[in-house]
């Protein structure tokens, strides 16, 4: 087993456990529980096999769905995030990100934060649209996306600073 694969297996399990055992119980202000498992999708190696990436993201979402009884909402949101990630990477790191041997976990904080904000926005919007599943409650969907999105971004940046990014000063 090479180290990239091992890293990703550990990350998959660790983020899932962190999500289920810690983050789902935060309930800040009654309903704000950050979603950190999507960091797996954001941080997945750039030079990947698209198929396994899509399937893994789908499974990750589906596992979270079984814990939260949300049907397939997390799965759909995660899958879509994985599908559009190349577009986001192009936006954030420029056209030639594939040739530059990009490691997202080692990239500058501002670039990563931008990627995370875009990713969380797409993921949460789809997630809460499917959880509410009612077009008349679109305001609540936007409210949940905003507040829970902010908490997810905050936790994501905290984890990034703790485990990845090194200040080059």
């Amino acid at each position: 087993m090479n180290s990239t694969l091992l890293n990703n297996v550990v990350r998959f399990i660790a983020l899932l456990l962190l999500q289920v055992f810690v983050m789902d119980e935060v309930n800040f202000m009654g309903y704000i529980s950050p979603l950190v498992y999507l960091l797996f999708i954001v941080l997945y190696p750039v030079d990947n096999n698209r198929w396994s990436f899509l399937i893994l993201s789908f499974l990750l979402g589906l596992i979270v769905d079984t814990f939260q009884d949300t049907g397939g909402a997390h799965a759909a949101a995660s899958l879509t995030l994985a599908f559009v990630r190349p577009v986001l990477l192009k936006l954030v790191y420029g056209e030639g990100y594939l040739t530059k041997n990009l490691k997202i976990l080692k990239s500058p904080l501002d670039r990563f934060s931008l990627l995370l904000v875009l990713g969380v926005l797409i993921h949460h919007l789809i997630l809460y649209l499917l959880i509410y599943f009612n077009i008349s409650q679109v305001l609540q969907v936007l409210q949940m996306t905003l507040f829970i999105g902010l908490s997810s971004i905050f936790m994501g940046v905290v984890l990034f600073v703790l485990f990845g990014w090194r200040n080059k000063s």
Binding site: L62, D65, D69, T70, G71, G72, A75, A76, L130, F133
Partner: peptide, 8 residues
């Protein structure tokens, strides 16, 4: 995923 969501 959408089928699961509708079911739920």
């Amino acid at each position: 995923a959408l089928v699961f969501t509708v079911q739920s």
